Simulated assay, not measured.
Amino acid sequence: MPLPEPLDERLRQAMGRVLLATLPGVLALMWVYGWGVIFNLLLSGLTALAVEALVLRLRRRPLKPALGDGSALVSATLLAVALPAYSPWWLTVTATACALLFGKHVWGGVGSNPFNPAMLGYALVLLAFPQHMSQWPTLHGIGLGDGLRHVAGIAQAPDGWAGATALDSLQINRSLTIDELFASDPAFGRWGGRGVEWVNLAFLAGGLFLLQQRVFSWHAPVGMLVSLFTVSLLCWNGSGSDSHGSPLFHLLTGATMLGAFFIVTEPVSGARTPLARLLFGAGAGLLVYLIRTWGGFPDGVAFAVLLMNLGVPALDRFVEARQRRSPT
């Protein structure tokens, strides 16, 4: 009978599968926004490794097992694809450093974080630098040279290179019907955000691969997607000017599939039991819709997940108490 693999090796393999599963979404983001996605990934990855190495040195711990387990790179990758492409270098570095320091190491490192590190870093820079976090480029972004200069702060990007996203436009819309928005606003595509709908489908494909590999269970992603679909269906009033968008629009716009398969499935900050994970995902889906519709930010995945992280102890206690009361 073979011996079980060490925990470090199992963690490294799981993180490797997660990184592999992000590849379709990364390629789709590059197709939509251009080289800015690669800039984000490189800056975030290098910063994550540097912060990880520095903290391990300060804590007098060996670099090799922890630095190679892939957890820092996974957090950096998820944060990088969530940030606007061509973000200034200091914004990406700040978000990543905050994610690793305040989302992971301040709690004791891998396996101890109560909050999703990537979403904590994202939320902190969103609150601190809202204007920079709203600068999403139009399709294909800008050229390689102009993009590098913009990221480095050497030169400003050309006028009109960034525009409102579909969620932005829908949130501030007061007069146009949904059909008119889809026909006239370049941010809208066939079903959701232009280009972003294909990004969501790409992350869905990566998420299904992780499900097939049993990296996580189906409970949290299904809970989030079913909840978001249901509440958006119940609140949908067709294509009127006061409509908040169809269920398909909400599923294929913003960071929905990234959140469902790569964020709410984070095992440490999530719930422990299958039923609690299902409720965790359902709560996140409901909060995403509420924040998108009536909140101050167009996409609510980060805040929804962080709020549900706060509720994990109560969810676990509720489910455990319910199971103790159930007849055996």
Rank of each mutant, 00 (worst) to 15 (best):
L91I: 15
N113H: 06
V37K: 11
P62I: 08
D159K: 13
H140M: 07
L54H: 08
R149L: 15
S134A: 15
G70W: 08
P65C: 08
W161A: 15
Y122H: 15
A271P: 03
G259C: 13
V268H: 00
V264N: 01
G109A: 06
G240I: 01
V226E: 03
W161K: 09
D242S: 14
L148N: 10
A205S: 14
A205T: 15
L286M: 08
Y122M: 14
Q212R: 11
V301Y: 11
L181K: 08
E320Q: 14
E197H: 09
L126M: 13
T293D: 04
A202H: 02
D146T: 12
G238C: 03
A166Q: 11
G206W: 05
W191P: 00
L167C: 09
F280Y: 15
G25W: 03
L248P: 00
G111F: 05
L204M: 14
L46I: 14
L42V: 15
S243R: 09
G103Q: 10
V81H: 10
R194K: 13
A187N: 06
V74R: 02
G300C: 11
A118P: 02
G240Q: 04
V32Q: 12
L27G: 01
G163P: 09
A99R: 03
P65T: 04
L7Y: 08
L124G: 02
D185T: 02
R325Y: 02
Y122Q: 14
L278W: 06
A76S: 13
L91T: 02
F209M: 12
L78V: 12
D168F: 13
R12N: 09
A276K: 02
A164Q: 15
W107A: 13
V319G: 01
W198S: 12
L167N: 04
L83D: 03
T94G: 10
C235V: 04
G145M: 06
S269D: 01
L258M: 11
E52T: 15
L29T: 04
A152T: 08
L91R: 04
H244A: 09
M224N: 04
P6H: 07
T230Y: 02
A72F: 09
G295N: 05
N40C: 07
V81M: 10
F216Y: 15
S269G: 04
A321H: 08
G109D: 05
L279M: 13
S239T: 14
M119H: 12
S44R: 00
D159A: 15
V51S: 14
L181Q: 07
L211D: 00
D299E: 15
F188A: 02
D159V: 12
F39D: 08
V312Y: 05
W191H: 12
V231D: 05
T293K: 02
T328M: 08
A48C: 13
W191Q: 10
R17D: 10
A95R: 03
K64R: 11
Q156H: 06
A82D: 05
N173T: 09
G143R: 00
L278M: 12
Q156P: 00
M257P: 07
V26Y: 05
V125P: 09
D179S: 15
N200F: 05
P327T: 04
S112G: 00
L278S: 05
